[in-house]
Design a protein around this nucleic acid. Sequence first.
DNA 1: GTAACTATAATATTATTTATTACAGTTATA
DNA 2: TATAACTGTAATAAATAATATTATAGTTAC
Lengths: 139, 139
Amino acid sequence: MNSDFTIAVHSLSYLAHLPDRIAPSDRIAASVSVHPVRVRKVLSLLCKKGYIKSKEGAKGGFELNCAPDQVTLDELYLLTSEGSIKPKFPNPNPQCLIGSNIEKAMDGIFIDLEAQVGSYLKLYTIADVLDRVEKQSRK
Amino acid sequence: MNSDFTIAVHSLSYLAHLPDRIAPSDRIAASVSVHPVRVRKVLSLLCKKGYIKSKEGAKGGFELNCAPDQVTLDELYLLTSEGSIKPKFPNPNPQCLIGSNIEKAMDGIFIDLEAQVGSYLKLYTIADVLDRVEKQSRK
DNA sequence: GTAACTATAATATTATTTATTACAGTTATA
DNA sequence: TATAACTGTAATAAATAATATTATAGTTAC
């Protein structure tokens, strides 16, 4: 899974926990600890899907536009990391029975695995993540 | 998942399909299409776990030492890629409620996810992979 | 004794990820 | 209405991770 997923989950949780649910990319970036340009790139995906709205100009930023308990981690996985479970198959030898067929043979397994991962991640929402964050902070 | 998994699965399938079930690293490497030194590195892990035996010297190589229908992909995943599902959390800000707790909050989710992945991969053996390779080759 | 092999460490190369810079466009507000 | 605070996005640079290569020592069949 790639770290755009981390950025998406962190950003949504961050916005959800703010009283006014809006923050500019540099503030979000400071919480996630990545570059603001990267935050904007990932959040632009979330904008397209309507999870957040972006406001340009002064006092702008990214504003939550969804119910935290309605957004599942599965959706964010698909948006940011779909297909990332399968490892690389670096040009196996086409002259060889195994080499020429193994990637396609494994593809079916990995497609189902992705579905498994999806159905598990569907059990968790941004609201759940926030709950866990709060529980963790009380430890 | 990292590509050492690919190398492990490919190598075991490759050995299993050979009449004498033995081959040197450079032959395996030619089928997988990676460097022989890398094959030896990954296969040395499989040796330690007893899946194969290595024979040094002339006419040596790696010899299968297990029943292909008894080795599950789960075992090979754990050996080569355990923990690789979880994305990176690049030093989130310790001054922030979200930043200081999100990685630990997510850890629980990813631990369970790994277990899910494991239990799915347990459904497939090297023998199954070989079957699929053969079916694929007849398409 | 030699050729064919494994084992493994050290280094180099390549690919991927991430950060940075740059700049055009938008908007609140002084 | 000028300016500061923003987003959007492309281009480039830097850092990191993955992979290959080189080197060397040890083993074994013949």
